[in-house]
């Protein structure tokens, strides 16, 4: 009986240590393991120049501008505290639209703007039918 209790304590301690290690690793890796820079990260830590990075945030309402060449666009990525102007030429994903999440792959220019080589649409955790969304969101797709 005694040995069994000892093993139970040991096993539970081991489990607690493993879970604790995971949580510590998660919080320690907070900066390094992020998938993208948010505009306010860039404002706080300076521009990550000279390397390929990802920039993520919301496409600012009314900021998408089509250039005359037909395939280039400019828009502004914001996280509510800071914003970064982005330029991109190529095909955008279907879900790329204003007031919606985006992750841009590319690099920063010394003037603080961002040149994207690829765009990913970031979906948020809300799922709803079109009738409900129509009342709550005024989303405009690029084609309109």
């Amino acid at each position: 009986m005694k040995a069994k209790h000892q093993r139970l304590t040991l096993a539970l301690l081991a489990l607690a240590a493993v879970i604790g290690a995971a949580l510590l690793a998660l919080s320690a890796l907070k900066d390094q393991a992020s998938f993208f820079y948010a505009p306010s990260d860039v404002e706080r830590d300076g521009l990550p120049l000279g390397k390929a990075v990802r920039l993520g945030g919301m496409v600012e309402a009314g900021s998408i501008k089509h250039l005359p060449d037909g395939i280039s666009i400019r828009f502004v990525v914001t996280d509510g505290q800071a914003s970064v102007p982005v330029s991109f030429s190529g095909i955008v994903p279907d879900l790329f639209r204003e007031k919606s999440g985006v992750v841009a792959e590319g690099h920063f220019q010394p003037d603080g703007s961002f040149v994207a080589t690829n765009l990913l649409a970031k979906h948020d955790e809300k799922y709803m039918p079109p009738q409900v969304a129509g009342a709550m969101h005024e989303t405009k797709s690029l084609e309109q």
Partner: peptide
């Protein structure tokens, strides 16, 4: 089997504590 459970909280909280492409918890 016990050591592998280190991944469970990482999977669960990855979208909360890190910037991820995957959406947050629905």
């Amino acid at each position: 089997g016990i050591a592998g459970s280190v991944l469970l909280p990482i999977i669960r909280y990855s979208v909360v504590w890190w910037n991820t492409l995957h959406q947050g918890q629905s």
